[in-house]
């Protein structure tokens, strides 16, 4: 029981405080910046992977998230990253994997802007992800106290898992062009029978792959590079009065 508490409450409190601070900061950053609407390229880092490594030292992750605003509420997003996983459960099971991933999709803003330049977002999104990973099982042992245990290993294998992802989140502009936000993700593995010998323990960008569907969250800090502003819409002149003047002149 004490062990269970150690493994759940303390890290949950740490993560909770971390997320609470970020959430509070996000919600306070409301409509501080005014000016013309900005379109640009936003690049960010998923900071949740840092406490993740502290809570689960067997995994090391890096995720970079980018998006480009292409319409008033539509963003094209491209995320990429890297993961390394090392499980050391001697003598029963040892597992190493390493790989990269790429996710492409769109985000759609659901929040009405109070003024044109407001960049705070409440968004839903979709991603299609693909990873390229190598997994290796340096040693395993199947225990048998009667006839004797059997030992073996599996050599390196390259896998290409693919998945679909839905997400919802917020992004708040806390300083000019600087955003913080968090998002919740649900992912469904599309590739079936990925490895008939050993199911991968963790897929880069997907997360723990012991089930076909996973939930995850991320906490981002991102910076928008304002590259262009949208062209102001041309106001069409009212035709009817002009026509009447012309007709009267004739």
């Amino acid at each position: 029981m004490r062990r269970m508490l150690r493994y759940t409450i303390k890290p949950a409190l740490l993560a909770g405080v971390f997320l609470g601070l970020s959430l509070g900061l996000s919600l306070q950053a409301v409509a501080q910046f005014s000016g013309d609407a900005k379109y640009g390229f936003r690049v960010g880092l998923d900071l949740s992977r840092i406490p993740m490594h502290y809570l689960n030292p067997y995994r090391t992750d890096l995720e970079i998230q980018t998006d480009v605003r292409i319409d008033s509420d539509l963003y094209v997003a491209l995320d990429g990253g890297w993961n390394r996983t090392r499980l050391d459960n001697k003598p029963v099971f040892q597992y190493n994997s390493q790989g990269v991933f790429l996710k492409a999709g769109v985000d759609y803003n659901l929040m009405k802007r109070k003024f044109p330049a407001e960049a705070n977002l409440l968004y839903v999104g979709f991603r299609y992800g693909v990873a390229r990973m190598q997994r290796q099982i340096p040693a395993y042992q199947v225990s048998d106290p009667y006839w004797g245990s059997v030992e073996g290993h599996f050599s390196q294998k390259t896998l290409l898992p693919q998945w679909a992802e839905l997400l919802v989140g917020i992004k708040a502009e806390v300083l000019n062009n600087l955003f913080v936000g968090w998002s919740l993700h649900t992912r469904i593995l599309i590739t079936q029978n990925l490895d008939p010998q050993v199911r991968p323990y963790l897929i880069p960008g997907f997360g723990k792959a012991t089930t076909n569907a996973v939930f995850d969250m991320s906490y981002q800090v991102s910076y928008r590079i304002p590259l262009w502003s949208p062209r102001p819409k041309k106001k069409t002149p009212k035709q009817a009065p002009q026509n009447s003047e012309e007709s009267s002149a004739q």
């Binding site: 493994y7 949950a12 993560a15 909770g16 959430l23 919600l27 809570l55 919740l184």
Partner: peptide, 25 residues
């Protein structure tokens, strides 16, 4: 509400012990 929500989200990334064996072998 925010603290509770944050704790809930914290549980999502909470630690796990991959060495536990809870299945029949």
């Amino acid at each position: 509400v925010l603290t509770l929500l944050s704790l809930l989200m914290g549980m999502l990334v909470c630690c796990e012990d991959y060495k536990d064996c809870n299945s029949p072998v």
